[in-house]
Design a protein around this nucleic acid. Structure first.
Lengths: 342, 342
DNA sequence: TTGAAAGCGCTAACAT
DNA sequence: ATGTTAGCGCTTTCAA
């Protein structure tokens, strides 16, 4: 029962007007008589006219589309960021085109290419974890398409990005643990080539130094992945040490749960014997017992800020000095690390 | 440093060929000499040519874009579905354009309009909870644009949809609870105008009847929202009854956690005194203690199936008889409801 | 205030 | 095997 698509031309013919007049009437151009506008609007409704963005975009030279590439649409963090992006973008009149790289550089490259073909006016991207060279990013920038990274970014002088201050987040957690009387603070670390993990680790190291604690390599566990099992493995390893830690700070929440389960099985008290903290503030942190101390990543804010940065770059096409926006993390102290309950 | 966009015309001029030849060469048309193709390809690379999808779409009369509308990009379920959608759509060569309605009909209408303007070739949508009239859906269908609902759908004869068999899921949970020896099974119900909640409730009711249990209205609590607090409220209400339930089945996971916390505070044992089940199988169900029995919703599968259904409809533009795909739920039995541990 | 006409980049008849 | 040409639906000079 498909109606034939009504176009501006259709309206024009029906009304005995020129297409240009109709076009202007529809975009509320000043030099069109009000009654003409009204007639056009009525006819548009009558014919169920829908503007064709493709045609308008082609003619005007911009598509009104904003491209987004995430490593994956799952878990808690990325959807939250996307929520912020979509909200802000649609408010600014942009359509969001979404891709996932599945943590694979090849797909990431394909995604960027495809988005450029779709004539997006900008791309917001969080790098895949397998991305080590950045030529595909340069290609985008060379085309003059604003490229904004969020959360995961390459460390280049040309990088525009919105990131969490992971260093400060990690530093703050360690500070808190020290205040709770912890002296041997262990660390679960993620893959170091991602800026976020590097910064979390450095925040941990710097905090130890600041508070006069030694960095013991035995107390740093490289997570093979970000699962509960990985955390359990790390925890078991720590417990075999001659002098086990009195706190474990995990770069991610899920491994912290793995650690917690190991501790509960062995009847080691949390936080009294070993305090625990994660990072990301996933919703489940408040559902487990004890509740898990963690660092809020401000995903929605991050998404909004990324769009805002894009909008800035979009305005000034002249040479624009790269900008990095650092969001302040917020440490959510909960039962897993809070010893002084009074 | 923005390169001037190279077009097919640019390539043609550089090579002294006609645009049509270049166009054909690039799409690997049979009637073009191999060496010509090669020259064109080389020049395309040299000039850093990127095809313009807008132009191609306009000319060919289809955009290669698939529109998706979700109530919100947050929580666990919708991102999971989107993951499946994006995966499948990109495999089929479609770009995904994403909107959220924020559970607001007005925004939902605006989203559909916008997607139609963007000339999407189909729309996958999960209805907002405030949608009660369906005219905007009919508009889409009248334009001949395939419209596929997932999870939340209007009950119309024209509805194409992929949904979970919520009735069967709920029935199965009650059956399991009965098998665990529960006799007074209470229910947390969601807003009844959404098909999913209606079906879950009916599954509960039908199961009670099947197993010879009476439906006691006192044991049905209408959730004011889907929060932990709502579940706690319902649980407290049940506990004040003269004869409280020995099982609570919540239409959603989060309220079940609220109920669990109330029970733990009062030292009521789960599952021995009161068994508990949720619905949705959110990741946190395996992180809390006891682990929460729940119903897996197959989000990724649902997304994939929705795209597949769209692809079917897309092929046959002739009159297509509406199809509804029912995904089989899977009941994940866990500690919160498992009494016979041997 | 309105109209005529060109053209965005591409594809697809229809030539040759 | 390649070229010529028209046109997708829209915006925007330029002209009236």
């Amino acid at each position: 029962m498909a109606n034939k698509q009504a176009s501006i031309t259709t309206i024009a013919t029906h009304l005995g007007l020129a297409v240009s007049t109709v076009s202007r009437a529809l975009s509320d151009h000043a030099n069109i008589r009000e009654d003409t506008k009204e007639r056009v609007r009525q006819m548009a409704i009558k014919l169920n006219y829908q503007p064709n963005h493709l045609a308008a975009g082609l003619r005007k030279g911009h598509s009104g589309i904003l491209g987004v590439v995430v490593p994956h649409i799952s878990g808690y963090f990325f959807p939250t960021v996307m929520h912020g992006i979509e909200k802000m973008a649609s408010k600014a009149g942009f359509h969001v085109m979404l891709c996932q790289s599945n943590e694979d550089v090849k797909q990431e490259r394909a995604n960027l290419k495809m988005l450029m073909n779709a004539q997006v006016e900008g791309i917001l991207i969080s790098m895949s974890s397998t991305t080590h060279d950045y030529q595909h990013f340069e290609k985008v920038q060379n085309k003059g398409i604003p490229l904004v990274f969020f959360d995961r970014m390459p460390d280049l002088p040309t990088t525009n990005a919105v990131v969490l201050d992971d260093h400060q987040g990690a530093f703050g957690v360690v500070k808190h643990l020290v205040e709770q009387g912890c002296k041997r603070i262990a660390f679960f670390s993620g893959p170091q080539h991602l800026n976020i993990n590097k910064n979390r680790f450095e925040g941990y190291v710097d905090a130890l130094e600041s508070f006069g604690l030694l960095l013991d390599p035995e107390l740093v566990f490289q997570l093979p992945n970000l699962s509960k099992a990985a955390g359990a493995e790390g925890m078991n390893q720590f417990l075999q040490l001659d002098s086990p830690p009195d706190a474990v700070f995990s770069s991610y929440d899920m491994p912290a749960v793995g650690a917690l389960e190991v501790l509960q099985e062995r009847n080691i008290r949390v936080p009294q014997d070993i305090a625990l903290s994660g990072f990301s503030n996933e919703p489940f942190t408040t559902l487990i017992s004890p509740r898990l101390t963690s660092v809020e990543q401000r995903g929605e804010l991050m998404g909004e800020a990324a769009v805002r940065l894009f909008l800035q770059m979009h305005k000034r096409t002249d040479n624009y000095s790269p900008q990095r926006i650092m969001l302040k993390p917020q440490i959510e102290v909960r039962g897993s690390s809070l010893r002084n309950l009074l």
